[in-house]
């Protein structure tokens, strides 16, 4: 079975983002970029499935600017077999991404798509579900465990207050949550070897997809600074206020 793993290039999770002074967005120039951490987990899961013999080939896909090649090289170093870059000027919205991925699914015919549950830049948490909808496939979102047997993926999902297990008839979409696995390092020997793995670049037009955004960002602002509240004089006063005023206990 072939696996398709979409990966997104985002501002590194260690970097404190800064809202631009003119409110037009978040400063990304000169900022360290990395693979979206949830996508790393997805790549790791795909590699483990291949190591177990449940998958035969892993195709990593990224959609965005030329530098997404670096993100794809990381996926290749982790164990993906080849990579496809859909070259766009900006990072398209989830709807457009889902349409591009659908076109790639038509071309590649994977048995499963594994991807991060959300990107840590726009925090949309939508692409996997949307791709599943467009394809009419089953979806196993927020996965913390995946098992494959006889054309069925048994997926344990992180839901409010616990876990839920669903059985999906393949082909299906899996979106990875934090506890699915701990991704491996892209080791230096593997990074060197990844330089020689195939990486193909295509244009959205080649896939017949219009990537015009549907949302316009009017402005981006810093969240309001939290103001300090009151000092209480005693534990009794504190508990009374939490009960009567804040109503949180």
């Amino acid at each position: 079975m072939k696996l398709l793993v979409p990966v997104k290039r985002v501002v590194d999770y260690n970097v404190k983002v800064r809202v631009k002074a003119d409110g037009s967005g978040v400063e990304t120039a000169g900022v360290k970029m990395s693979m979206n951490p949830f996508d790393e987990i997805a790549v790791e899961e795909a590699v483990r499935l291949k190591e177990k013999g449940a998958a035969t080939e892993i195709v990593a896909v990224s959609i965005g600017v030329q530098q997404c090649q670096e993100t794809l090289r990381t996926a290749l170093a982790m164990g993906a077999d080849r990579a496809v870059l859909v070259l766009t000027e900006e990072s398209p919205e989830p709807l457009a991404v889902a349409k591009l991925l659908r076109a790639l699914v038509d071309r590649e015919q994977p048995g499963m798509v594994i991807m991060g549950k959300q990107a840590i830049d726009d925090d949309m948490n939508a692409t996997g579900q949307m791709l599943a909808g467009l394809l009419g496939w089953a979806q196993g979102t927020f996965a913390s465990k995946v098992e494959l047997s006889d054309g069925v993926a048994t997926v344990t999902r992180e839901v409010d207050g616990g876990l839920e297990t669903v059985a999906l008839t393949l082909p299906a979409i899996i979106t990875a949550d934090l506890r699915l696995n701990e991704p491996r390092y892209a080791s230096l020997p593997n990074i060197m070897k990844a330089r020689k793995k195939p990486l193909e670049t295509i244009a959205p037009g080649d896939l017949g997809v219009d990537v015009t955004p549907r949302l316009t960002t009017l402005r981006v602002a810093e969240p309001p600074v939290r103001q300090s509240g009151v000092k209480v004089g005693s534990v009794a006063e504190l508990v009374a206020k939490l009960r009567a005023e804040a109503k949180v206990i």
């Binding site: 925090d123 960002t217 009017l218 981006v220 602002a221």
Partner: peptide
């Protein structure tokens, strides 16, 4: 809506 784990707030308009 919040973006970047709540470190910024984006005001977005939908054309849908």
């Amino acid at each position: 809506r919040p973006i970047y784990a709540g470190n910024a707030l984006a005001t977005v308009r939908s054309t849908d």
